[in-house]
Nucleic acid binder design. Structure first.
Lengths: 120, 120
DNA sequence: TCTATTGTTCGACTACAAGCGTACAATGGT
DNA sequence: ACCATTGTACGCTTGTAGTCGAACAATAGA
């Protein structure tokens, strides 16, 4: 594990933040981090290939959305809440709320076995 | 000019909204619409090729960020403020504020002749 | 109806991003 | 020192997005 670098506050751009949230996998990571405050990569990987996930962490780091603390060989990821809020006030909160809304909408189609469990 | 369709509220996804704001040209369009409430394509084109811009309007429309009213052969574009706020409360405002912040940051390097006009 | 204007659609090219296997690096434990 | 674990870096393939010229569609006006 070589250089894990994070952009400075002023180098965080809206364009990059949006770019980072373009992918459902990364949206999921951010959404989960919002509830866990800190999590290792392996916890978030959910069985997906390491190299793919490592790519997503990098995109999220480069965008300024998350920071990674290294402890031994394991990496702890967390949202850069306070910093992001300093740079773009209110944005992260609005994004997190939007993620919750969006997840609700999709849940209607995936879960909710009601229609099949109540035949007559 | 054929079918100009807009997604329903529930079909607007955070992923698509972010995707739409991935491009600086589209960020600029949204930022300008925030101040103008309505504008024709030709006004926003700023001399760029029509076909390229038409593509950007389509992405913005499909994402749910803007709607297009057709009047004769000219198209009037506007932000879907109220609807977006109903779907993702606070998100659009936060995004618009973020655009302003981001634009400021870049302006420091492009405009602002102060450092060169106040030598001593 | 003929023409100018306003945008969209199509097609081709280019650039970038995702996915993933493999190799590598860094650390902890024995 | 050796090995297992954790994650990154590299290289490749594939898919998708941006760019733009050229052709087309729709409308207003003469």
């Amino acid at each position: 594990m070589k250089g894990i670098s994070h952009p400075a506050l002023d180098d965080i751009s809206l364009e990059n933040v949006c770019q980072a949230l373009t992918d459902p996998v990364r949206i999921e990571i951010v959404g989960r981090l919002a509830k866990m405050s800190e999590a290792t990569c392996s916890v978030l990987n959910a069985g997906r290939p390491k190299s793919s996930m490592s790519h997503h962490y990098r995109v999220l780091r480069d965008s300024g959305l998350i920071c990674t603390r290294t402890r031994g060989t394991t990496h702890f990821n967390a949202l850069r809440r306070a910093e992001l809020d300093a740079r773009f006030p209110g944005l992260l909160d609005a994004l997190l709320k939007a993620m919750a809304v969006d997840a609700d909408g999709e849940a209607k189609y995936e879960a909710s076995p009601r229609s099949s469990t109540i035949p007559i």
